[in-house]
């Protein structure tokens, strides 16, 4: 198993729950869901941020994707609540 260096970025209340806007982690995840499982093990603040996946959206390398998307080659994964622009 090889690990991949991934920049994880957080926005809005996800950022507030995690406690910081960005970090680089070493991950063995192949999908977004596996990455979330790794993040949940990093502490109670992560468990709180990722408690309800239905309340989250994810972008891999700045493109909106679903939770079963691949992250093996990704350099940046972003987690955030549903967008409220306009």
């Amino acid at each position: 198993m090889t690990s991949n260096q991934i920049d994880i970025v957080y926005f809005a209340w996800v950022r507030e729950r995690v406690g910081h806007p960005r970090e680089r982690i070493s991950s063995r995840a192949t999908t977004v869901m596996e990455l979330i499982d790794e993040l949940r093990l990093m502490g109670p603040e992560y468990e709180a941020a990722f408690a309800d996946i239905a309340a989250l959206r994810v972008a891999v390398d700045q493109q909106l994707v679903t939770f079963d998307a691949q992250v093996g080659e990704a350099s940046e994964v972003a987690f955030f609540p549903p967008m409220t622009g306009g």
């Binding site: 909106l64 609540p81 967008m83 409220t84 622009g85 306009g86």
Partner: peptide, 18 residues
């Protein structure tokens, strides 16, 4: 509204919420 990556936080007296 729902696909551009913007998030609004509303500030009211004594409170703030996304």
């Amino acid at each position: 509204k729902s696909r551009a990556p913007f998030w609004k936080k509303e500030f009211r007296t004594g409170t703030a919420a996304w």
